[in-house]
């Protein structure tokens, strides 16, 4: 192939403009340097305060705490997802009684702190022991772990129901109408047509909800379940060493980062028909 006559040679390219040092740019670079210095300071602190005996003593505890956190979040998000289906159905129902009931549920659980809900379920229900024993529920509520799982499930179900309702609402009416015009049964239409489209909208909010649950679960130590944060506080109260908290922060960060990547993967998978 020969170059066409009159084509531009590299020497004739317009000169590259140097980006001017505007105020914004200077500020951006300075801020970036501050962040980098902070990250370096934390890293230096961790290296300098590295203490093998401390690590030996607390690493297994952190791991057991992390395992508790993961179990609690995974189980409560799954149970919450199941519970959110009837609630979302209630919220979208034309039956006024059902819709009011679902509205009240969501209103209460989104409007009050998770801390208060957990406290009330554990200590509050604890004071009704004779009544709970009479109906055979005490053996469930006696255990702190069950109470934590129960409270977290109820809480996340309210949020997930709203995510689900919003996502289903975002699928155009035309989709429902087309499905029914083709004679597709309603349940099949929901499963094969509505939900796959709704999930694209719902995925990011679901991801947010799981991340919030991971961090929200840090309150569970008030009812004696020692999760990652509980173990951190215990380690700190015995060592008075701030690196205990930095370790916890790094573990939470890693957990959230892992989850973020997982959600990116899922998004790629469920939106593959939109890619060219």
């Amino acid at each position: 192939m020969t170059a066409a006559p009159g084509s531009l040679t590299p020497a004739e390219r317009p000169p590259v403009q140097k980006a001017p040092w505007t105020h914004q740019r200077t500020l951006g670079v300075v801020l970036l340097c501050i962040w980098a210095a902070l990250a370096l300071a934390v890293a230096a602190f961790m290296v300098e305060s590295w203490n093998p005996t401390l690590f030996e003593r607390y690493a297994p505890r952190y791991m057991s705490g992390l395992w508790i956190t993961i179990q609690l979040v995974v189980l409560s998000v799954i149970f919450g997802a199941l519970l959110s289906i009837p609630i979302a159905y209630g919220r979208m129902s034309e039956n006024r009684f059902l819709s009011a009931l679902a509205y009240a549920y969501v209103y209460f659980f989104r409007g009050t702190p998770l801390l208060a809900q957990t406290f009330l379920i554990y200590y509050g229900l604890g004071s009704f022991r004779p009544e709970l024993q009479a109906i055979g529920l005490w053996s469930f509520f006696r255990d702190a772990w069950n109470c934590a799982l129960f409270a977290f499930t109820l809480n996340t179900a309210a949020y997930q129901a709203e995510i689900l309702r919003g996502a289903i609402g975002s699928v155009g009416r035309g989709q429902w109408e087309a499905a029914s015009a083709l004679g597709i049964p309603k349940l099949l239409a929901i499963r094969k047509i509505i939900i796959p489209q709704a999930m694209i909208v719902a995925l990011r909010p679901y991801g947010n909800e799981v991340i919030l649950m991971i961090k929200g679960s840090a309150i569970v130590a008030i009812i004696t379940v020692f999760d990652l944060m509980g173990e951190t506080r215990r380690a700190y109260s015995q060592t008075f060493d701030f690196q205990t908290y930095i370790w916890a922060a790094l573990i939470y960060l890693a957990l959230v980062e892992l989850l973020r990547n997982l959600i990116d993967l899922i998004e790629k998978r469920i939106t593959r028909h939109l890619k060219r």
Binding site: G126, A144, A221, I222
Partner: peptide, 18 residues
């Protein structure tokens, strides 16, 4: 051994029998 944030909470739990 169960650890509570303040003495108020362990009192609640010995009253209710946990």
């Amino acid at each position: 051994v169960k650890l509570y944030p303040t003495s108020e909470e362990y009192k609640l739990d010995i009253i209710n029998g946990r």
